[in-house]
Design a protein around this nucleic acid. Structure first.
Lengths: 81, 81
DNA sequence: CACTTAAGTTCATTTATATGAACTATATTA
DNA sequence: TAATATAGTTCATATAAATGAACTTAAGTG
């Protein structure tokens, strides 16, 4: 089942950052300390990642949480909540 | 049960912003479209708010999500994840 | 071709959050 | 005092995310 629009851009953001940093799903999951099955389902927009999950990913990718949420598409959708 | 340190500063952030904007828990919950019971437990650090919940609160408070995560204490704890 | 390895997906189970109703506490006032 | 209203809390239930194992897929290689 497809989740909401807001979640879909968050999940896409994870994929974009992962590719940008040259990680496979498997590697990012392992090094972040989350399950690769979970990351797979998140990137396919099948679940909404928990905040603590996003924090682990950010820590692994070396970016601040506020910067995770600082990207173009997000501002178009926040108003729809 | 007390939740992790990272979550505690996120929950405190919600309380701080709510007070700053002169909302009661009841009013913020109602206007954000979340349950007041849930908000109560979040502010008491009994649960980790979902990202979509934080997004609703930010929308109601009129702040961007990236700014929600832009505050002093957060940088001290991200490295501990 | 058969085998191995790496990457990704699926799913049953465990664990956790969101809801809404019932409850407590406090203040106000008729 | 009894009644009402407002704010906040607790908890059973419903719903959803995280895990880990089993699975698929594809690439490479003896």
């Amino acid at each position: 089942m497809e989740k909401q629009l807001f979640n879909s851009i968050i999940c896409k953001r994870i994929t974009d950052l992962r590719i940008e940093h040259n990680f496979t799903k498997e590697k990012l999951a392992y090094e972040s300390g989350i399950s690769k099955g979970g990351l797979s389902e998140i990137e396919k927009n099948m679940k909404e990642p928990r905040l603590s999950t996003i924090a682990k990913l950010c820590s692994c990718l070396g970016i601040k949480i506020k910067d995770f949420f600082d990207f173009e598409e997000i501002d178009n959708f926040v108003n729809l909540l």
